[in-house]
Every structure is written in structure tokens, then in C-alpha cells.
Amino acid sequence: MDWLELFISAGFWAATLRIAAPLIFGTIGELICERAGVLNLGIEGIMTMGAMVGWMWVFQGGSLWGAIMFAAFIGAMFGLLHAVFAVHLGLSQHVSGIGITMLASSLSYFVFRMFLPNSTTPPKITAFQPLEIPYLSKLPFLGEALFSHTAMTYLALAIIPVAIYMLYRTPVGRAVRMAGENPVALEAQGIDVLHIRTGAVMVGSALMAVGGAYLTISAFDAFFFGMINGRGWICVALVIFASWKPGRALFGALLFAGLDAFQVRAQQLAGGIIPYQFFLMLPYILSIAAMVVMSKRMIYPKALLVPFRRGDRI
């Protein structure tokens, strides 16, 4: 395989979409939280939890779509916990989020071990299969690159326009954005800032958990310890890269995933010359680079990290 062939192979583009999908869920989830003014560092743990419960649901005989719903529900519950701490009690969003990540990931591992005490090789489930779209899947290049994905990958792509519509075209979305920009003004409109923020954090956390579940019920078919492997933190970086805009989050996730897919293939080409660890570092280095690039043009929500207490005047 040649370097150029890499980019014109359908497999590369298919892999890009596959890598991007969980990041899209996570990034949009984090973006919704932050747009409402709440940083959610629980993301890494919530994604782990989503990956575990989604997989477990199917393993116990549940349906794949049920698994998504269940993961979303559990994610929303952890979001509610974060909202109680960071929104209602006004605790430090950093500290609460890190606490949620600790709790959610340790609880995932504990529960997994309770159901499967002695499994060394993780058991497998029947995950989402690629959809056979009539005619389109048969197209020569595009068929493999774009039209042979699982339903969950298309779901990931579909949430972007939904998020854009909800955030910019509906009263609820306007309230969410105002909760992150000027909560006092929102309160003056008679809308409860705490409720809006709580709702946003719950919805965002549900999406994060679905992103985690994508890994175990669509991308792979098993749950491994440490399988999230920093993806949650990468999503936090992508939100900054996207300057808190959903459309750009899609672009960021695709760009990032493309480079990651490239990295895996370049590893095979350059194998032996450059140690594989340096390729594995690339996603993390790229995330940092992305934040550096965007640092000059950041337009962050004004009330991000600022707890809202009714009656406080700033």
C-alpha cells in the first residue's frame, strides 16, 4: 500500500466515520452541558458507564435499541448527580466532575465483575451490524465508505442537525444558551436557571453514555477495562476546538478521527522505523495541538464555571 492509496481507500473513510461516531456523541453531550454553563468532567466515567451498561443490557438478553435507551437513562442519572452537586449546591464544577468520573468508572468495573467474576477473555455479544441500504451500499467507493455503517453511526451523524436545531431554533435551546451566557437575564424572564442547567447536564450526560455504549455494542462487541482510554477527555478538548459550536464539533470529530485512522494505517507502513507508541500518542498530541490552535479564537460561554445562586447580584 502506498501513502496516497491510503486516502483513496474506502476502508480509510469508513474507519474515520467509525472512530468519529463515539466522539460525536461525547462532544455534543459535553457541548450541551457547557453551553448551559456547566463543565462536565464526569464525561470519562459516564462514557465508561455507558459502555458497560449498554453491553450488559444486550448480554443479559435485551435488545440493542433497548441498550441505547438504558445507557442514556443511566448517563442521565449520573448527569443528575453532577447537577445536584455543581448546579444546585454550587460546588466546584471541576471537583464534582472528577468525583463523578471516579464514581462512575469504579462502579462500572465493580458491576461488571459482579456479573462476570472470573472472565479473563471478555465474552462477546451480537453487536449492531452494518445496514444493507438498497443500491447505495452497492456503489463502488461510496458504498463501503459511507453506506455500510451500523444504524448507530447514522444516529451519531443525525444528532448534529438535531442539536443545532434544538440549540438555535427552539425556545428551550435559547434558554440553555442563555443559562450559559447570562443566567441573571434568564432568571429575569421567569425561567428557572437551575432547572435549565440540570436538564442540559442530564441530556448531555445521556449522550455521553450513548457514546460509550457505541464502543461496546456497535464498534466492538465486548467490554474491556479501560476501553474509554481518554476518549472523554478528548471530547472535552474537541468542544474547545469547536468553539462551542455543534457544526464545528462534527468537523473537529471527523478531522480528529481521520488523523487517527491515518495513524493506524501509517503505523503499518512505517512499522519498524518509528516505534508504535509514537503513533498511539498522536490522538492526544493532536487534541492538545487543536486547543492551542483555537486558543486565540475561543468564544466560550460567559457563565461557564460560574455557579448560579438565586438572589446573587454580580
Binding site: G230, A237, I240, M281, Y284, I288, M291, M298
Partner: peptide
């Protein structure tokens, strides 16, 4: 990065953990 470009240190320090471990 934080003091010159205001790059959020939470994410950079977290991601550096992964980079250093691979190194």
C-alpha cells in the same frame, strides 16, 4: 500554554498522562 495562550490546563495535563505513559 495556560499563562501565555489561556489553554485549559485540565485537558492538557490529563492528555499528557496518556502521552507520558506511552513514552
Amino acid at each position: 500554554l495556560k499563562t501565555t495562550l489561556k489553554v485549559d490546563e485540565v485537558v492538557t495535563t490529563l492528555l499528557l498522562n496518556f502521552i507520558i505513559l506511552l513514552f
